[in-house]
Every structure is written in C-alpha cells, then in structure tokens.
Nucleic acid binder design. Sequence first.
DNA 1: ATAATGACTATTT
DNA 2: CAAATAGCCATTA
Length: 112
Amino acid sequence: MPTPPRLAILELLALVPSGTVVSYGQLADLAGLPGRARLVGKVLRDADTQALPWHRVVAANGTISLPADSEAASEQRQRLLAEGVTFTGKRVNMKQHNWQPDLAAILMLLKY
DNA sequence: ATAATGACTATTT
DNA sequence: CAAATAGCCATTA
C-alpha cells in the first residue's frame, strides 16, 4: 500500500510530457515534499516502470543518475533521445527540456 | 534508539 | 569539467 507521498510523486510523474525532463528534487518539491529528492529515487526503483515515464527523471545537473555503465542508464538515454531530448556530452540540455508545470499539473497539485 | 544508506543537490576545490 | 564536501531526510538494519 503506497504511502500518500509516493502517490503524489507517481501521479505527478505521469504528467511529465514527452521531450521534457525533471530533476528528482524538482519532482519532490512539486509533489509537496521539499528536500526529499532521494525519496523520489527510491520510489522510481519500486514503482512499476512499465507504465511510467521514469526515464524523464534526471539529476539536477542534467546527468543520468544511474551507474554510467549500467543497462538502465543506456536505455534511459536512448529513450530520451528518441523523444527528441538533446544532450551536450553527458548532460541533458536542461535549458530547453527542463519541464515547467502546465496548468493541468498545477491544478492537480492542489489536492495535496 | 542508533547508525548506515542512497536513481539527490549545491558549493567548493 | 571532474572530484571532493557537506547538507539533506525517509527508509532500513
């Protein structure tokens, strides 16, 4: 049984549009959980990655927060590239792709 | 109750 | 730009 905080994170993640990314901390803040970036990471580990855009979550500096050599890391990068996300070396160009919550997302946040 | 852990982050070397 | 440093805080052991 997911605790309320986790639920908020998951619902919010589901709203992140293709071609954009969010940082762990940003997602935590939006979900009303300031300072809990690490919790987001844990949620992603436990969550059902099949149905959620988990690959749209990257570190605040734009890098992928998974072991550079891991299979998951390369897959995440591949998925992002497929959505049109551009990289500069190892970092996502946050300037262009960092998600800015739209009205729908803001409204949804009100229930928490 | 205490201590270690980690898909984090901001700052400083 | 890479690496170390020091905060962060729920979850685990």
